[in-house]
Design a protein around this nucleic acid. Structure first.
Length: 168
DNA sequence: CCCTGATTCGC
DNA sequence: GCGAATCAGG
């Protein structure tokens, strides 16, 4: 957009008339963002914003333009691929919550790892109340290929057959 | 989903 | 300076 004094005047006029930024944009043949951006730069009186921005809000994510493409350097050596595809559903039932409250209907959740583990070699079975001081993960040696130690794997993996709620 | 305005930041 | 992308709320 070529912001001539004329177009700026028009923007000011339409803004003063209380049109929405998108409407002004339509009338002037520019995007809403262009209008907002220009109005902001011109320090035109702000409209009541629908959004609440805490002054001390935790910076959510750096907004603005997407990061430009990374410089894409020469191919990494990548001697050991290590990380492969995300495993498809391997288990037949989701691991139970640490505290099986009553009898929650078992959900066939695909989420095997709800949070990152310290290591793929250690059991990530949660112990204690999440959010409390004493909460921790089991951290015993995990069965290779599984996120739990033998003891907890036996609790985590339950055959889905034999589970018969009522027909649906 | 549609809409709104505000802000960030690569260009 | 510009404005797309993103956020955040209705």
């Amino acid at each position: 957009m070529d912001w001539t004094t004329e177009s700026i005047d028009r923007l000011r006029a339409l803004w003063a008339e209380g049109h929405s930024t998108a409407e002004i944009g339509r009338r002037m043949g520019v995007s809403k963002n262009a209008v907002v951006g220009k109005a902001h730069r011109l320090q035109l009186p702000a409209r009541p914003s629908p959004i609440r921005r805490d002054p001390a809000a935790p910076r959510p994510v750096a907004t603005g333009r997407r990061p430009t493409l990374p410089p894409l350097r020469a191919a990494m050596p990548a001697a050991t691929p290590q990380r492969r595809e995300e495993p498809r559903i391997v288990v037949e039932a989701a691991p139970p919550a640490p505290h099986p409250v009553a009898a929650l209907p078992p959900k066939p959740v695909a989420v095997v790892r709800a949070f990152p583990r310290v290591s793929t070699k250690t059991c990530c079975w949660p112990l204690g109340e999440p959010g409390t001081e004493s909460f921790r993960f089991c951290c015993d040696a995990a069965i290779p290929g599984k996120p739990y130690c033998a003891e907890h794997a036996s609790l985590a993996y339950v055959r889905v057959k034999d589970r018969r709620e009522d027909a649906a």
